[in-house]
Amino acid sequence: MESPVGEKGVPACGICGEPAVIFQPADRRYLCGTHLVREVEDLVRATVQENALIRPGDRIAVGLSGGKDSTALLVILSRILPAWPGANLVAITVDEGIAGYRADTIRAAQSLTGRLGVEHRMVSFADIIGQDLDHLLIGREKEACTVCGILRKKALADAARTAGATVVATGHNLDDEAQSVLMNAFRGDLPRLLRTTDARTAADFLPRIKPLAAVPEKEIAAYLFVQGFFTELPECPYTKYALRAEVRTFLSDYESAHPGTMQNLVASKKTIERCCAGAPVMEPLRRCRECGDPCSGDLCQVCRLRHSL
């Protein structure tokens, strides 16, 4: 319910009447900091429980870049995890080797894990492919996000296995998920659209879960800010090459005009998943002929990348 403007020109929380910190357009509702924190944590807990993302005794490797999404993920999991007896956390930071960018986020990750008392491990691109990202991208800067994404996924999975993890958690939020649905729809890539990563069914993969998938990006930032966890960090210098940025702007425009669009997109994906259950849409799982990692073709993406260097 919408709230009238209250004290000092700030709308009042729809639950308690305290000054609001955020407006939720889809629900036309204002929330104060206390109720925002409670709602975000309840939403993540519900996402985890309804989709059985965590099991008792799990060792959860949290991909911790030091940015806002992974910071929120680690904070929230550290708070809700006691509901799963024996479950524990290990944070893994991947150092891609991006000059002028990564050092600040690594410091933020180290500070956070120290504050929360969570085990922290580091892995670098140099560890897995012998070079940092800046050197890998010389002459192929426009491929930055693709190359980085392939190697980051590999680095995180390898480090998680080494740490004895049973599941990998990433900080993808509602905006990320809606953007991915749209990008895959634009490409006409149904297999990729259906490649669910929040299920624990694929025996050959270390399961990947996205506990923040129902939380809007703005609520994550506000959640951190009101608790003093928000740190302004530099922008990745390769952002200008990101195709996703175009889709983000398009979706932001549409979400502004039609609140709830992102939730509807993600709900549509789940409907398509149900309709396609059992259909021969996905390519069968194979093994990379060079490294043995699971993949959909003859060579995995990392080995293909190695050949292209």
């Binding site: 403007v5 000092k8 020109g9 700030v10 709308p11 000054p19 609001a20 910190v21 955020i22 407006f23 204002y30 900091g33 905006d175 809007p216 990006e217 703005k218 930032a221 506000a222 800010f225 009101v226 983000r248 702007t249 932001s252 425009d253 979400e255 502004s256």
Partner: peptide, 21 residues
């Protein structure tokens, strides 16, 4: 876009409907 930013007024987070002077 309101979705792409958060805004603090005098150090306190406020929604986009908050008044400013």
């Amino acid at each position: 876009h309101p979705q792409e930013v958060i805004v603090a007024r005098n150090g306190t987070l406020v929604p986009e409907q908050a008044a400013i002077g």
